[in-house]
Design a protein around this nucleic acid. Structure first.
Length: 504
RNA sequence: GGUUGGGUGGCCGAGUGGCUAGGCUCAGGUCUGCAAAACCUGCUACGGCGGUUCGAAUCCGCUCCCAACCUCCA
């Protein structure tokens, strides 16, 4: 295993060489969804980004424990209402039915996008005891106080003893936060407005509630991630990821809770590397239901939306995501999707073309063979540089030209040894399918005729007839067949080794 | 107002001091009966204004614009 993987650590704001705590092993924690509604496309982007990161770590030979939680309690709305509880009321369901319903939908969407399931997918509601224990530890360390049945994290006390750790991730200065909001004196139970609840007293009408040393209540949002990452990955672990909208307050609070609950107040508690994915925009603006600037994954699949002119399958969308670096904002526009759809088709076609190539060079590999090998090495090297999928893909597309030129005869297969071609084929397969997680003939092609035996036979017959017409120089008949097929959605391509056809 | 991250060619989107990705589109060419596809070639851009430097898209300052989070939020 080479050790030259670099990743951008949000904590230091620099690219760092990745050094795991235990050689050969990686503990990876990613904040999962709150399951109170259908999965948002932005979530899909975030989890797909981390899926590629997970896949690449596996590819590097690491044994990875990938923990991604399901939040089904504690995440409140602006007015203090539990998100799960509210949705349960609206749908007339038990809160846990709501959680189940949207968890199933979430898993289905992850499967369509070919995301690996995590190693462990713990639920917040299944870890109440661990969360209560963590609250007790934070209290014991003097970084929290009980107030009227709730327990609050004491940010000022924590920062006094921990070298201003709180605020480091998000770049916030705690003094400024205090100065700005001190005179607002809104929340009576808190000592300071910057303090946040780690255990909350349940009001009479609050459904999700558990007994605790402080009375009936429920854990604060933020706490579940600290408790579950500690339980499954340890007090210190390697990588923590999430969308950058979670940086503050969620991740900042997580860090404080991890450090604040650590038995000897260790500064290094929690994750060593923090990775944040950027947001998904549509037409340059944030996706927002209220102003109609939104689209669901389903609408993209079917094309049933005023925002798009075409349908876009999950694999093509995955390719689209690969073209943008995970730390850059991704702008979803119909033009960009159209370009990506064509690019993806070109890539997959080149892959298919590669299957039919045979190296003709001897033991000695020629220039083209060396280019193939070098290009692939370069593509993998880009992945080592903070998972730079757009650049890796750029290298792959340079190879696409080589593959097509070998097929078309512009380059000679004499220039490629059999061994080099075999290695290239398997190396490219690993990159495209294992690391990028694309699927050849995946869900995008369903219903498009691929693998349809009857159609295939009909096409053989039609092309045979057309071939005869061409031999007879009966161009009228030949073109009539071609035009007719095109109208039916079948494109005919005359190559030097016979005629091929494809849908669309 | 604060914090963080952005503004790159017709459209996307990498790149972080000189070697100037890639995809899509467009133009020319090769191939083809004609097309399509494929291949080759071309299109030299970095929001604005200053500054540092032999040299800046890349560093510094100011400014404009966009986004997320925060400022009220249990």
């Amino acid at each position: 295993m080479s050790n030259d993987l670099k990743l951008y650590n949000s904590l230091s704001r620099e690219k760092e060489v990745f050094t795991p705590i235990t050689p050969g092993h990686v503990g990876l924690y990613v904040c999962g969804p709150t399951v109170y509604s259908d999965v948002h496309l932005g979530n899909v982007r975030t989890f797909t980004s981390f899926d590629i990161i997970y896949r690449y770590l596996l590819h590097k030979g690491y044994q990875v424990r990938y923990v991604r939680n399901i939040t089904d309690v504690g995440h409140l709305r602006d007015n203090g209402e539990d998100r799960m509880g509210k949705q349960a009321r609206l749908e007339k369901l038990e809160p846990m039915e709501v959680a189940q319903k949207y968890t199933v939908g979430f898993h289905e969407m992850m499967r369509l996008f070919n995301n690996h399931p995590p190693s462990i997918e713990p639920r917040a509601s299944g870890h109440i005891i661990e969360q209560i224990t963590m609250v007790e530890e934070i209290l014991k360390n003097g970084y929290a106080y009980e107030s009227n049945g709730s327990v609050y994290f004491d940010v000022e006390a924590f920062n006094a003893k921990n070298d201003g750790l709180y605020g480091k991730l998000s770049g916030r200065k705690i003094d400024e936060l205090l100065a700005e909001s001190r005179d607002l004196n809104a929340q009576a139970d808190k000592k300071n407005p910057t303090d946040f609840a780690i255990w909350m007293k349940a009001t009479d009408d609050h459904i999700l509630r558990w007994p605790s040393p402080w009375g009936e209540g429920f854990p604060g949002w933020h706490l579940e991630c600290s408790a579950m990452s500690t339980k499954y990955l340890g007090e210190e672990f390697d990588i923590h990821g999430g969308g950058n909208d979670l940086k503050f307050p969620h991740h900042e609070n997580e860090i404080a809770q991890n450090a604040g609950s650590c038995s000897d107040g260790c500064q290094n508690a929690g994750a060593h590397y923090w990775l944040h994915t950027n947001m998904l925009l549509m037409n340059g603006r944030k996706m927002s239901k209220s102003d109609g600037n939104t689209i669901t994954p389903q609408q993209l699949f079917t094309g049933d939306s005023a925002h798009v002119t075409d349908s876009y399958g999950p694999m093509m969308l995955r390719f689209f995501m690969l073209q943008t670096h995970y730390r850059s904002p991704m702008d979803l526009t119909d033009d960009a999707l159209q370009a990506a759809k064509k690019g993806y088709a070109r890539l997959m076609e080149a892959w298919a073309n590669l299957q039919n190539l045979e190296g003709e060079g001897g033991a000695q590999n020629g220039t083209v063979g060396k280019e193939l090998t070098a290009g692939l090495v370069a593509a993998y090297a880009e992945m080592d540089d903070d998972f730079n999928t757009p650049k890796a893909l750029a290298k792959v597309f340079e190879l696409v030209s080589r593959i097509n030129a070998l097929k078309g005869g512009q380059l000679s297969l004499q220039e490629v040894s059999k061994v080099a071609l075999e290695d290239f084929r398997s190396g490219l397969a690993t990159l495209l399918f294992d690391v990028f997680g694309l699927q050849d003939g995946g869900p995008d092609l369903i219903g498009m005729g691929a693998g349809d035996e009857a159609l295939s036979k009909v096409m053989d017959l039609v092309l045979d007839l057309r071939d005869q017409a061409r031999t007879d120089k009966n161009w009228g008949m030949s073109d009539k067949l071609r035009d007719g097929l095109k109208e039916a959605g079948v494109v005919v391509k005359d190559g030097k080794d016979g005629t091929e056809w494809s849908m669309g």
